[in-house]
Design a protein around this nucleic acid. Structure first.
Lengths: 241, 241
DNA sequence: TTGATCTAAACCAATTATGAGCCAATATTG
DNA sequence: CAATATTGGCTCATAATTGGTTTAGATCAA
């Protein structure tokens, strides 16, 4: 309604288009909820009342209500009415995963490894190929002669990643890779430097060999049990009892 | 392209015309977008309004809009209108994991859920707060009255995410959130649409209620067992025996 | 003239909004 | 308990809105 066509170069933010009815209705209702005018549990006017109040057709109104319902803002029930929904904590967005991973404590990481890896080892016992087993033994050999903790840590990580990969579940491999990024965190490295003694390295080496042997024997239960014991040992050395 | 030898000055892009309406229009609209006057998603005035505001013929205006569309600045849709395009998303650090997740088969997803969720439920039984439990029941209520499968799916996903979050392991929550993105994949949705019957929805609703009850009773074993049975039922309905 | 650009109008196709009627689940009343 | 009223769920036909296309004519520079 503000057709000031005198200035050709400045088209202003004119008016909301007629076909924005649905969006406009949603905005109105959401504002009522946001302002606390309609509180959670409040029963909103019937559709036949709302269509009059808002000056739109019932079909249009219903499209808006459907979207509000899908967004979780309201709940509708035949014969009862439509109600303002209880607020739900806004879930974190996808992007949070990285910070989630990088911000995770060693305790959290071990908690998850302790559940994922024994299970994965059980699967790997039946699914691992000869090439997988060869690669595992390769990792163990490298770790055994590693000159320092970071190098040992690298081959240790590679070994566990290979075991996980042998479970032949691509999604699992991806998740574990994300978990593994935490190994490159300074905090994790410092923890390792402080806790990985030569004695423990020898113990880990022995446990790693047993695990791969169990996988080669195609014994799921044995592999799962061995890797679980290994991870418990790791957790103890990292975090204490 | 490079025949500079014959002609000293080749007028490649010479637009000598005094009134280059198209370029002028493009400049005006781009300026509106750049200045934030028209934000991403904003629906610009209809062509029939713009031609009045700019004082040009619709044909000329459309030439400008076409170029803007080709440049990715706006998006046009018959019957709906023209919209300022969303800015292209910059490459994510998580792309590898994301593609890993999105490329995963429902079978792989269920395999991991079946191991992670019972364990998480066991932890949640002792770690869930009253607010967590309230939110779970809220999700169940939403799912119960969901008018269609996508909406049901949304609240079902929210419920499981809440249970996971109740285990109070931030890394786990992040991983599960990544897994959950697969629910938005077309393949997954089609599978759900095809397999989620009213009968199964009723069964799931009952199982969900039992699970949350077990969590409220602080019974880890019962919760783990119930969610395991639930997920087995889901897997069967999705993938068969 | 020739070619390019702009103006103008009519019509096409996809989407949205309207209005009416009827159905299904729930609430209320006798 | 049974009957009625209320309320959301749904479908259909119709009209309005909006970008897409074609055609014709006017203007202007090379």
């Amino acid at each position: 309604m503000d057709q000031m066509t005198s200035q050709p170069t400045i088209p202003l933010n004119t008016r909301i288009r007629a076909s924005d009815a649905v969006a406009s209705i949603i905005e109105t209702i959401e504002s009522n909820i946001a302002q606390g005018l309609w509180k959670p549990g409040f029963r909103l006017p019937t559709e036949r009342e709302l269509e009059l109040q808002l000056g739109v057709a019932r079909n249009t109104l219903r499209k808006s209500l459907k979207k509000l319902e899908e967004a979780g803002k309201i709940i509708r029930q035949i014969g009862r009415g439509s109600f303002v929904a209880e607020p739900v904590q806004t879930g974190n967005v996808m992007t949070s995963l990285l910070t989630q991973v990088l911000g995770s404590s060693p305790s959290e990481v071990m908690e998850i490894r302790l559940i994922l890896e024994p299970w994965a080892a059980g699967l790997a016992a039946t699914r691992a190929t000869a090439a997988d087993l060869t690669q595992m033994r390769n990792c163990i050999a490298h770790a055994a002669v590693a000159p320092d903790v970071p190098t040992f840590e690298k081959w240790d990580g590679e070994l566990h990643q290979t075991i996980i990969s042998s479970a032949k579940n691509g999604l699992l491999a991806g998740l574990y890779e994300a978990i593994n990024t935490v190994r490159h965190q300074p905090e994790w490295m410092k923890l390792k430097e402080r806790t990985v003694t030569d004695e423990r390295r020898a113990a880990y080496h022995h446990q790693h060999g047993e695990i791969v042997d169990a996988l080669a024997e195609r014994d799921p239960d044995k592999a799962a049990k061995l890797i679980r014991n290994h991870l418990i040992a790791v957790r103890i050395s990292l975090l204490g009892e």
